[in-house]
């Protein structure tokens, strides 16, 4: 542990954090039946992706400095954040509408398209 504390971290460590967030989001999306729980899973997935973008944007985190994404990575992360906010707003509106019509937010109940 102390050994690790003296070492610099690299992009790979950030990628690991991103991977854990991503996988947690995926499991959250598959296991929760509440529509808002699924939405939270999506937020986690998007954040995992964002961590990767930020990690790749910083040249000081890697040995091959020139290949870092630089500002592009950060701009993409910003677009992800903004679009996630928009997505959450629309998803929430749909969920509220669904709740108004069905009195529940259980995604398994949304099976009317089966006919």
């Amino acid at each position: 542990m102390m050994q690790f504390l003296a070492q610099p971290v690299g992009a790979a460590h950030y990628l690991l954090v991103g991977a854990v967030l991503f996988v947690c989001g995926v499991i959250c999306m598959t296991t929760k039946r509440n529509a808002l729980g699924v939405l939270m899973g999506i937020e986690l997935v998007l954040n995992g992706a964002n961590v990767n973008f930020i990690a790749f944007s910083q040249p000081a985190l890697r040995a091959d400095r020139g290949l870092a994404l630089g500002l592009d990575g950060q701009v993409v992360a910003i677009f992800v954040i903004v679009l996630a906010a928009a997505e959450a707003a629309v998803a929430l509106a749909i969920v509220l509408n669904f709740y108004n019509n069905h009195g529940t937010v259980d995604v398994d109940e949304a099976d009317e398209l089966k006919g």
Partner: peptide, 11 residues
């Protein structure tokens, strides 16, 4: 994938 690239492990 993350641990597979030496250059990503840090400076």
């Amino acid at each position: 994938t993350a641990l597979g690239v030496r250059d990503w492990m840090g400076p």
